[in-house]
Amino acid sequence: MEPKVEYSGGLLLPRGHNSLTHGVTRAVPGSVHALALGGGYAVGPRDGRTVYFGRNRPLVHVCLGEDDQQVSRRHGELTHHKGRWWLRNTGRRPIRMPGSQWLFADEGAIPLVEGYTPVHVPGSRDREHLLEIYVTGADGDQPRSRHNADTDPPRPYALTPDEKVMLVALGRNYLLREPNPKPLTWKEAALRLAELQPEAGWTAKKLERRVSVVRDRLSRRGVHGLTREEVGEPVGNALNDNLLRELVRSTALTPKDLELLDWGA
């Protein structure tokens, strides 16, 4: 049986504590706050210090999904190492990170950025359990408001005209704002491209090769979820789904681009 956790040097956050979305009161630079529905825990930075979260309240600092047996007794941990807080999954089920990325138990720990990070642990019957994490910045204060500052514009990825046309064909459903879009099949997209550009010799294989080049390029730029190693087997539509979501998010593709294929938005 695992030993009970110790709370030395930390602060328990009560049930009903305010959400961390708006930051935290001034704290020691580099501290971490972790909060779930039943309360949370805050502690300052120290190399090797660990905050546990999971279902079994006596074994963790932050109890998450206490009544849900799909959540592991100790589902994960936050560890301070070399000046940063790191998140590791130690549970049976993956942890969903922002951007619909998944952290699995057989992966290493990932570093947390300063500020707010929400993570979700999937439970039974479509339940999801939210763990809010807030890492205090170097000044120990909340991020300053920037009410009057200029808005940072999105930075779309550069695509050649041919790349844009083929990705619009593949991502038609995303640009039509469907609630749960899926990429067209290689064959479906290639047929539409062949109608539009009969001289270009579009085939399903050619389209697959060209899209793979774009995925590789964006993967080298740091976009996650564009390689088989990152998404795991079975791959299914995951690679193209991640690619198209990233292109739409960055405004590299917009609904207006449907006009390139004579598809109305």
Rank of each mutant, 00 (worst) to 15 (best):
L130Q: 05
W202G: 00
L176T: 06
E163V: 07
M97W: 09
E188W: 04
D126M: 09
W202C: 02
L226P: 00
F104G: 07
Y174W: 10
M97V: 07
V135L: 09
A190N: 00
G137C: 11
W202H: 06
N180H: 13
H147Y: 14
E233F: 11
V235Y: 10
L167V: 07
Y174D: 03
E230N: 11
Y174A: 02
V214E: 02
G171R: 02
H147R: 14
P111E: 08
R177P: 05
P179Y: 00
R209S: 07
D106S: 12
L131C: 05
N148Q: 13
A200F: 09
P154G: 01
T227C: 10
D139A: 11
G222V: 08
P111I: 09
E188S: 12
R172E: 13
D152P: 09
H120V: 09
L130I: 10
A138V: 13
E229N: 05
P181F: 00
V119T: 10
S219C: 10
L103H: 07
G137E: 04
E229H: 11
A158Q: 10
F104W: 11
A194R: 03
T117H: 06
H120I: 05
G123D: 10
L184W: 00
L170M: 14
V121M: 14
A149F: 03
L103R: 03
E114F: 05
I133M: 02
P94N: 12
R92F: 12
P143W: 15
G225T: 11
L159R: 05
T185H: 01
A138D: 11
G137Y: 01
T136G: 03
E199P: 03
V231M: 11
G232V: 13
Q142K: 15
R221H: 08
L218H: 01
P98S: 14
L175S: 00
D126Q: 12
P118N: 06
R209Y: 08
P183M: 00
L218T: 04
R221V: 00
L176D: 07
E107Q: 15
P183K: 00
A158R: 11
V113R: 11
D150Q: 14
R217M: 12
H129F: 14
Q101K: 04
P154I: 02
L184S: 04
P161W: 09
H147I: 05
R177A: 15
E233W: 11
K187M: 02
G201I: 13
G201V: 13
V119F: 00
V165W: 08
A105N: 03
L196C: 06
G201E: 09
R228K: 15
V223H: 08
V213Q: 11
S219F: 05
T227V: 13
D139P: 07
L131S: 01
E163D: 10
P181G: 02
Y116T: 00
P143N: 13
G171N: 02
L218Q: 00
L193C: 01
L170H: 01
E208T: 09
T160M: 07
L176C: 07
P198Q: 14
E233I: 05
T203R: 05
A158I: 04
H224W: 15
E163Y: 05
L130H: 06
L184R: 03
V135K: 06
H129L: 04
L103D: 10
S219N: 14
